[in-house]
Amino acid sequence: MKTIIILRRELIGYFLSPIAWVVAVVSALFMARFFENSAVFSRSANLSGVYVNTAYWLVSVMMPALTMGSIASEFRNGTIEMLATDPVRDVEIVLGKFFGVVAFFVFCLLPLPVFYVLLRVSGGNPDIGPVLSGFGAMILEGALAAAIGIFASALSGQQIVAFLVSALILFTLRTLGATEGMEIPEWLRRCFAYVSMPSHFYPLLRGRIATNDIIYFLSTTVLFLFLATRVLESRRWK
C-alpha cells in the first residue's frame, strides 16, 4: 500500500523540519505547564485537566501548523505533478499524509504518559480508565483536526491561508455547542450540540465510552479526508 510509503516520507519530513520540532517542544512545555497547574496547584490526582487544556489550546493551534504545508507544499515544490503521475491514487496521498501527521501528533503527546508515571511515583493513585480513554479522546480529536488541516491545505496553495482556514473550522466546531442563553429553537440547539466537538469529547474524558461519540469523531474525520481527496483531484483538473 502506497499510503505507508507516503506516511514514512511524511514522518521523515516532520523530523527534518524545524517547524515540527518547534511545535513538539512548545507543546511539551505547554503540557508541562498544564500538568503543573493541575497536579501542584489544584492537587488533582488525574490528568483530565491536562487533557482539556491540551485539547483546547494545542490541538487548535498545533494541528493547523503541522498540516498547513502537507498538500500546499506539494503544489509549491511541484512534487504534486510527480505524485499524480507516479502510480499512486489521490486517496493514498491524502491517507499517507493523514496518518503521517497523526503519528507525529502522537509523538508530541509522549509527555502525557510521563505525567501519569510522575503522579504514581509521587503517591497519587489516578484511575487508569479515564487516563486511557482521555488519551484515546485526544487522539480522536487530533485525528479530526488533522483531517480538517489536510483539507484546508488541499484548498489553498498558501500555507498561511490553510492555517487560518483550518483554525477557523476547528474554532467553529469547538464553539458551536455553546448555545446557553441564546434564543434559538430546540432542534437547532440539538443540531449544534451534535456537531460540536466538546459535547463528544468530554464524556470520553470522564471515562464514559459511548459509540456515538466515537462514531462522531471517526465519521467527521472520514468526511474531511474524503473532501480533501476530492479537492486534490479537482485542483489539478483545472
Binding site: 521523515i12 515544490n77 511541484g78 512534487t79 505533478e81 510527480m82 503521475t85 507516479d86 502510480p87
Partner: peptide, 27 residues
C-alpha cells in the same frame, strides 16, 4: 511512464538516495 516535469519535482529536505528510494517505492 517515466515523467520529468518542467520544474524538477524534488523534496528539498531529502537526500539524493532517500529521494530515489521514495520514488522507487512509489513506482
Amino acid at each position: 511512464i517515466g515523467y520529468l516535469p518542467e520544474n524538477a519535482p524534488i523534496y528539498p529536505e531529502l537526500r539524493v538516495e532517500e529521494y530515489l528510494r521514495y520514488r522507487a517505492a512509489l513506482k
